[in-house]
Amino acid sequence: MSQDSSFDLVICGVGGQGIVLLSNIIGRGCAKADLEARTGELHGLSQRSGTIYIHMRIGKDNLSPLIPYGEADALISLEAVEALRYLEYLKDDGVIILNKRVINPPIEVAQLSKEKRTDFIKFDEIKEKLNVITQNIAPLPALDLAKEAGNPLTENVVFIGALSALKSFPLDAEVLKESVAESVPKKALDVNLKAFDLGYKAAYDSLCQTVECVERKID
């Protein structure tokens, strides 16, 4: 991969989903592959259940920690609603790797209760809105895949595997897997690598018709 290959990524979700670890795994991969990388992160008020995002920029040409509106190549959303919150950063026809899981914020639940309504925001409604900007959406049942891998806590690693399906993403699967291996406890390595592969496969299957994807054999 050349030093010029750049990639802008917005990672978002709900506090407590392991987003910082996710970006650190990618960052570690960049150090290995001798690629420049920088992030804009928010910590501090991000208690569990608040909205959280990290801007991650790979490549030496983009200097600022925040991605300009309309320039992100991909948006990975560990929770479905949150993808919509950061949509202005995504370029037209950019890729969204979207968790199918919706976590309803307490204020929404309470509001509906008070108004005696039951119309919670639904995954399909969100996806319909996202489709205005792009058709390249990979809906991932990430929590189910993580459980299938053997541990629901590997939900974030499912998304790293999904990213590895994109041909435009400057890090290849081997480097990313090495980073995962160095970042998770030894005894949890196998389940994490399995989560990685399941994420790759799910993203490949839903995107390969419209986006250039990396073909890889899964054992």
Partner: peptide, 12 residues
């Protein structure tokens, strides 16, 4: 597009 987006304020 965000008119349907619920707030996610920090909470305990």
């Amino acid at each position: 597009l965000k008119t349907i987006l619920p707030e996610r304020m920090p909470c305990f």
